[in-house]
Amino acid sequence: MKKQFWTQILFVCIRVYSCFGQNSLEYYSKINEAELAILDSNYSKSCSYYRDAFKINNSSFAKDYYNAAIVAAYVKDTNLIIHCFSQLARKGVCLSYLKKQHSWSLFKENYDLSYFEKIQFQKFREDYLKSTNFYLKRKLDNIYETNQDILLKNYPDSHQRHINNINELDSLIRVFGFPSEELIGVGDSLEVSPMYLYSIYNLDTQGYKNNIFFDLLKKATIHGKIHPGVSSFYLSLLNPLFELEKTAVYKIVTSDTLIMSQDDYKSKINKWVYPIYPENYLQKINKNRQEIGWEDFLTYQRKVIYNLKNNNFIFSLNGGLSTYQCDTEYVAQKYLNNVQIIENTK
């Protein structure tokens, strides 16, 4: 029985590992260059990098298509805009979501998208409805809902219920492969982390199948099944020794009654700040980040700071920008030590 179980796990690992061959790290590198060009306002160069990246991976991440569409609007590349929008529709992103974004006005200023809205988007949306594994999607939604129900109601057998839930997720991955955007889409928006991942790790089942899910999630990240910005949070939870440092920018919010005794800390309350880490720590986390294809921390931090001031683009995923509530001076000082205020932000 054990032999059969590990054979199945190995089969899943092979499926995940072989999905994009050796090209996913190259893909991540091209996307990083494209995003850095955006930070430098070199949209033509960014557009070129995005095109190169999309040649490497025919089913890229939704956030990359979204950013590329904005870049294409700046350089008036209609074909790339339509291509990116069509891919977003094929991943399940709703037109209503796109219209709510700040960037939509940029598209409307330069192009008449009425035909795309009325005809083309609906056609691509139908592709999503045909190609998406909704059975798997519903099963994953049920796993998340069950996880939340257990946490809220605190059943006498909560521990066993959690284990059963995790086992079901394990079984689904063994049958269908890792639930990538290509397999289940992204839902109605781009920023939401896949909910089923919350059930992998919780306080009631710490350590249960952590190694199995860590290996699967890591391989899935390296080979383009899930974005590093999404998986990083769970990778560090499943294996605390695999540090990646997710939060690049944060704000400390305190109660009105809390009085900070030192002016240096007081000036940083309710302000966006970024942490300054020692070089040896940066080297440690950057080694791990490089392993999964993620940009180095300072580059990532630079992108998050840019995103704070210009939210047309999507750079920060799943916690890169955070707000912490601190009700004691000691905790607030701990967070506000060795940080720099980001000027001209709210």
Rank of each mutant, 00 (worst) to 15 (best):
M1T: 03
Q8I: 03
I9Y: 10
I9A: 10
L10N: 14
V12W: 03
C13I: 10
I14Y: 02
I14C: 02
R15M: 11
R15P: 01
Y17I: 00
S29M: 04
K30H: 08
E35D: 06
L36D: 07
A37V: 00
L39T: 06
N42M: 09
S44K: 15
K45T: 02
A53E: 00
K63F: 04
K63P: 02
Y66T: 01
I70M: 03
A73M: 09
T78F: 13
F85Q: 02
S86E: 14
L88R: 04
L88H: 03
L98P: 08
K99D: 03
S105D: 12
L113W: 08
L113M: 14
Y115W: 14
Y115S: 10
E117G: 06
K118M: 01
N133C: 11
I143A: 01
E145H: 12
T146Q: 08
Q160H: 10
H162K: 14
N165R: 05
I166A: 01
E168K: 07
E168R: 10
E168L: 08
R174F: 02
F176Q: 00
E182K: 14
I184Q: 04
G185T: 05
V186N: 15
G187W: 06
L190P: 03
V192P: 01
P194C: 03
L197W: 13
Y198P: 00
S199P: 10
L203P: 04
F213Q: 02
F213T: 04
K219N: 05
A220Y: 03
A220G: 15
H223R: 09
G229C: 04
V230H: 05
S236F: 02
S236W: 05
L238N: 04
P240Y: 14
E243T: 12
K251A: 00
S255Y: 04
Y265R: 00
K266R: 13
S267H: 12
N270M: 09
K271C: 13
W272H: 04
V273K: 10
E279M: 07
E279G: 03
L282K: 09
N288W: 11
I292Q: 06
G293F: 03
E295Q: 09
T299G: 08
K303A: 05
V304A: 15
L308Q: 03
N312E: 10
I314N: 11
I314F: 12
L321D: 11
Q325V: 08
Y330Q: 12
A332S: 15
L336W: 02
N337K: 12
N338P: 09
I341G: 12
I342N: 03
I342E: 04
E343W: 07
